[in-house]
Design a protein around this nucleic acid. Structure first.
Lengths: 214, 214
DNA sequence: TAGTGTGAATGGATTCACAGCC
DNA sequence: GGCTGTGAATCCATTCACACTA
């Protein structure tokens, strides 16, 4: 039952960037914005911006542009971040703690509702700068996910534990995964997984830099 | 002077994933691999794998597949990670410290050679789990980047400081940027920038999950 | 006048299908 | 028999160009 079929993947990715840009523009006092202005900082053409937005509806006024407030609201609605998503974070290592401490999720529709770790020496510790989160044992995973109606799981464990962690999250009822471990997760078809592999991003940059000077 | 012109962007992204997969396969004892096996875990078709690799040369043997060792070496060569890149990290907050502590960059061709912060109360502090890195003041940025021949800068500062940080890194001689701040950097044309915005990844996942149940 | 929305045209990327090789 | 490398065909995304509107 997709709300938006036949929308290109790249369009969805850019919609996130538009939203970020719009919030910055609003903070700078812009009430209205043209497709050209919106695309400029993101290096996206005006035609691309209009086409992207047109996949979801008609939000602009000819001669005027888009109302910033209205477009922010629409983008949030489309992305599904007009409500707050409760997430469960597994892994209280360096990355996990950095995620738990990250300000700025709150304003964008996400909340880390609970943190888990297999390492019992972490369990029970409060996480710094994280509004009172305390590391819980994996044994509580299912009940907390069910109790807090958590739909998104964050995998921030070492590579070797990522697959089993993903499986436990999914069988506890999570609908999608954000994976920070450097492995490809083997999940049932149709399960949304977004992966963020730091080494991969480094390599993309290394390639581009190497292209410059050779 | 690009080494590889007319190679699709998506191919470069997948090449990183192939490399990761190959290293995992090697650890499992595979000496040789077919395009189908290589693509399976990544959900990439065999034809796609072959086409991707063929942009860079002829690495396979009909009837046999690809030699894992050889392909790893080639992928590293293409991505430019057969050598070690020294990087400069700016920002010793939560994310910066997590990056500095991250094991697993070393094995993939990256080394954080120095860490900087504007906050003088951080300066001089050793970073935990990071092989003796100590936070330096921004005043040393230029000399350290020149002295250690650093080519890559990592921006891990708050959004409001990202642009000026990027400019300082570039004028100190860095050739490319890895940006973790949630803003679009305004850089001169041709400067490689790879951005990792955690909120954007969350939103991509939220969209997909919202599509499931509506 | 300034700027959207959108069919048509172009340009890229993926998949197909098969000749050729181990 | 199994598997690569690659042109040809298909599919998808971006850009163009312009009718239309505030």
């Amino acid at each position: 039952m997709p709300r938006y079929a036949h929308v290109p993947g790249p369009t969805i990715r850019r919609l996130s960037l538009y939203l970020r840009q719009l919030e910055s523009l609003r903070a700078d006092g812009h009430a209205t914005i043209s497709s050209q202005q919106l695309g400029k900082a993101l290096r996206v053409t005006d035609a691309q911006v209009r086409k992207d937005l047109a996949y979801f509806g008609q939000f602009g006024r000819p001669g005027l542009g888009y109302r910033v407030d209205e477009l922010i609201e629409q983008a949030r609605l489309i992305l599904g971040t007009n409500r707050v998503w409760a997430t469960a974070l597994v892994g209280a290592g360096n990355l996990g703690r950095a995620l738990a401490a990250y300000r700025g999720f709150a304003g964008r529709g996400f909340r880390i509702a609970a943190v888990f770790d297999t390492n019992l020496s972490f369990v029970g510790r409060p996480l710094p700068q994280s509004a009172g989160l305390v590391v819980r044992p994996m044994s509580e995973l299912s009940s907390v996910i069910a109790g807090e109606q958590i739909r998104i799981g964050i995998v921030a464990v070492p590579a070797a534990e990522a697959q089993v962690t993903a499986e436990r999250l999914l069988s506890a009822g999570v609908l999608g995964l954000l994976n920070f471990a450097p492995v490809a997760l083997d999940t049932p078809p149709g399960v949304p997984v977004v992966s963020v592999d730091l080494a991969v991003h480094f390599e993309q940059l290394a390639f581009q830099v190497a292209e410059l000077s050779s």
